[in-house]
Design a protein around this nucleic acid. Structure first.
Lengths: 230, 230
DNA sequence: TAGTGGTCTAGACCACTCA
DNA sequence: GAGTGGTCTAGACCACTAT
């Protein structure tokens, strides 16, 4: 086989693994042997195998060689969606409504998450997101104003808080917690639903470097689904 | 700066982006210029920039050059967990109970998902997963026995259906749907909870090549959380 | 058409780790 | 110590696309 391109080599190896040519945990040929077999440079084989190792299909060790992963772990990768885009992707019209904006001392769990000192105030914002004038999600957000003082001057008539932050601190890190909860009275009222209905909850904390920016809790309308692929 | 390694170059560029040296959508220097600046081969720069492009931080076009992504999209990546490991990772003891196993014609939505013909039977399995003898999740699973006929001979005393499938068809593709639902009477009974409580639902379809293997619906105990990082 | 990224090569050296 | 993967280099050619 004379195959030139790390893509084709990668897919070829992937197919051979899926077809069971090498079983779980088995050693596959060394890079130099594969480079002979495929008739290309070792660099090309290396590139292909590294990609498969990144995917979790292979495990590679110097001297130990390359093995088919014995405990294949499936990773799912999905976008943390911007709600406006979620809505507009469906062809619906997006709208949001800021229902609360105040500066006050956050509760202790938020203080801990955002690393805010005891008597320090933060900005609290509550937004309802609409899809075709039906409420899609309620957003409760605390912003660490020490980290992003400019936000106190921003108005959120045109863009949502989230979009403002994405533009201002675009490359942040974060963690996310998904769960299912029963709506309380307040959330149910905002979503024009009934208390007790199941709501998909996304709880997210965001930081840049070692500064915590914001903590968000999103309650989605009942029936909401998050899709992804393996 | 004389820096030799695509890792360090990658992190250096990442930091420069995060620090706003190049703004959203801005053009960054061409590979050959960066290779001069960093004092390394163009290949090394290429490797670093490709990695950042994979992450979604950069957008690259031939002739058009490399730009900081104007609409940064955050990706979350997480493992599709094997329940046993989820449980044992917490130091708890795992146990499962097969409460139903039968061959019958699946409902139409399952037939569509698994591409099963109208009068064809499939295998239905219902399992309860326990963590320290407290029910953690209920699993409803349909298996396409035309794709995996060996499963009819397997007993599931030691390992769960999921683990059997992972071992037998390790490298499958799939899609996943997360949602929040209110427990119905049956699920609530299995989880020793109450009907109406919110349950985190994972709905997953798995295939190999163009053959559909299995469709799973997992109902998690109320309070369950799925964690991931950005 | 010219400039950019995409890729391949051949060779080299290093780092790790198994025996 | 020896065999494996990890990485870098310098040069080359190609593919795409903005102008």
């Amino acid at each position: 086989m004379t195959n030139h391109s790390h893509h084709s080599v990668r897919e070829s190896i992937r197919t051979r693994i899926e077809n069971g040519e090498w079983s779980l945990g088995a050693l596959i040929p060394a890079e130099k042997d594969l480079s002979t077999e495929y008739g290309c440079a070792r660099t090309t084989i290396n590139r292909a195998l590294q990609a498969l190792a990144d995917e979790g299909l292979l495990i590679r060790k110097r001297k130990g060689g390359t093995r088919v992963c014995a405990m294949p772990v499936r990773y799912a990768k999905f976008e943390i969606p911007i709600i406006r885009e979620q809505v507009e992707a469906k062809g619906d019209q997006y709208r949001h409504e800021l229902v609360c904006k105040k500066r006050e001392i956050p509760p202790s769990d938020i203080r801990a998450k955002l690393n805010i000192e005891d008597q320090e105030k933060a900005l609290y914002l509550e937004t309802i997101h609409f899809s075709n004038s039906a409420p899609l999600a309620v957003e409760e957000r605390w912003v660490n104003t020490q980290a992003v003082p400019e936000i106190l001057q921003a108005s959120f008539d045109d863009i949502s808080v989230n979009e403002w932050l994405v533009k201002t601190v675009p490359f942040s890190s974060g963690d996310v917690l998904f769960s299912a909860q029963n709506m309380n009275e307040k959330i149910a009222a905002a979503l024009k639903s009934d208390a007790g209905k199941a709501t998909f909850v996304v709880d997210r904390t965001t930081w840049v470097g070692d500064e915590f920016i914001t903590a968000i809790k999103l309650y989605y309308q009942s029936g909401f689904e998050l899709y992804t692929q393996l």
